[in-house]
Write a protein that binds this DNA or RNA. Sequence first.
RNA 1: GGCCCCGUGGUGUAGCGGUUAACAUGCCUGCCUGUCACGCAGGAGAUCGUCGGUUCAAUUCCGAUCGGGGUCGCCA
Length: 589
Amino acid sequence: MTVFSERVPNGVLNLNRVGDEVRLLGWVQRRRDHGGLIFVDLRDRSGIVQVVFDPEKMADSFSLAESLRSEYVVSILGQVIARPEGMINPNLATGKIEVIAKKLEVLNGAKTPPFYLIDQVDVDETVRLKYRYLDLRRPEMQAVFKTRHQVTQIMRNFFDDQGFYEIETPMLVNSSPEGARDYLVPSRVHPGEFYALPQSPQQFKQLLMVGGLEKYFQIVRCFRDEDLRADRQPEFTQLDVEMSFVEVEDILSMMEQLMVRIFSETIGKSIAVPFPRLTYKEAMDRFGSDKPDTRFGMELIDVGEIVGKSGFKVFANVMANGGSVKCLCAKGCAGMPRREIDDLGKFVAAYRAKGLAWIVFSEEGIKSPIIKFFTEEEMQALIEVTKAETGDILFFVADKYPIVCDALGHLRLELAKRMNLIPEDMFNFLWVTEFPLLEYDEEEKRYVAIHHPFTAPMDEDLPILDTDPLQVRAKAYDMVLNGIELGGGSIRIHRRGVQEQLFRLLGLSDEEAVAQFGHLLEAFEFGTPPHGGIAFGLDRMIMLLTGKDNIRDVIAFPKTQSASDLMAHAPSPVSDKQLKELSIKTVLK
RNA sequence: GGCCCCGUGGUGUAGCGGUUAACAUGCCUGCCUGUCACGCAGGAGAUCGUCGGUUCAAUUCCGAUCGGGGUCGCCA
């Protein structure tokens, strides 16, 4: 037995181990030197334990203990003792015991770290990212990656139980014009040609179904060269799932079971199934979002019928042009200062709303720049439908339907945040179903797929696919938790004819379709089973489970908003020799 | 690509048209046998992100730029 292998993790030490001689390995978190007596908080992955260096118990290496500094890596042989009365530390999991050191060996010294390696870290994230390997030593970070590991293990066990195979798909794939910008990889063997890193394994997982594998899953890295956000990284991880011989309901109920297991086995939360289901239309109508946060009310109210013929020209014109007028009732906000209301106007402007109208129901009476345009009957109808009472404010947005939903949907969330309406410990799962298949892209002057071009239309909408494409609903679904899209998927098209019809709608000529997706179209002619699947954003799921509000905190080595790695300094220039081999010339302005 | 915020010892902050650039913590040295954010005494440590402009004088005001963050567009 080597010295290292006889090691006992700090975290297992407790009163039951009193008297034991133990070998501890770890990092010096803190040293308290009392001259004749030294205390060291020793940290390893499992926890922190106090080690006592007493010259009477270890005469020969006491001077070595005096030289210990933060983050030195040490090996300690010592005896576990119960702490004397009154010296128990209730803030420490191992606080009822301590270890009296007999032998000390310094395995490695350490420079003073640039920041404290403690949970209450108060340091610029730039520094944490530059020294990520130090940041990762903090117990808070270690807990994240423990949870992350647990989640992927649960996933693997779950899908194994259900008869799935974990199968890898290529990382070097074809670039595709649809979707996000690709990360490109030049081919040396084929000068002037490029691979792309996958945005998702979509086509390959469908081809695995054609290949008769029937049930596939993969925990897989995906790449998208788009601008970053608090919850978006250029490379991120998906749980990718595909099954043959399934309908929508089969997938939803299986994924609900997966969530039940993940949430109970990691954070001990029991999740009720089945999840509520909202159609896309209902979600937009009621919450102004395709990923509604249902932890609080304040739903959107359609008042187009009431104010559409009123004397307020803004509302009347919008309705006459086929737009929409909705409002929400902010309970108890009547005391909001005028300046804050004006700020909310700027807030909705970010979502392209041209204005925010309001009616304040204060103790002193009703205040509003717009009520002078309403008749008594119109006001009464408004109050009735909105249930507005003294103390409330009504906020109105009038515009095209999608803009109204977007602006008020975000205003609803913003008001809830400001008013503290969101219960922290609630986990509201739901499914959003019946997404539209297509939307019209004004810039490109063509239809684009909302989910992706392989999503199957709902059977009852197939007849209007060519005549009224925007009304066609898809067999697509998103899983939403607390207003965050955790994952989404669909039943796929599995017949060549329908797939070709879709490509034509998307503006692809038959030649282009064959050039880009010929292998898939051809595969569909060789006995492709009905199939469908789903993909989850693993990073976001870990964010929710660990309560982090930033995706960088759940990725071991994340990138900054400008997609740089501050530790490894990626990306970076390459040599002319490398470029030449790849037949690449850079053109920098 | 647009908008907003931030950049001052290792770290976190304060500050001001003229300062010896302040405070906390960390670090170093000495003292200390029951601390656990140990304590006490002393010490070192900063071209105030970079470049340019205004000014007698800029860390401070202005502009640009670089870096970081948030967000809209974007993300099939």
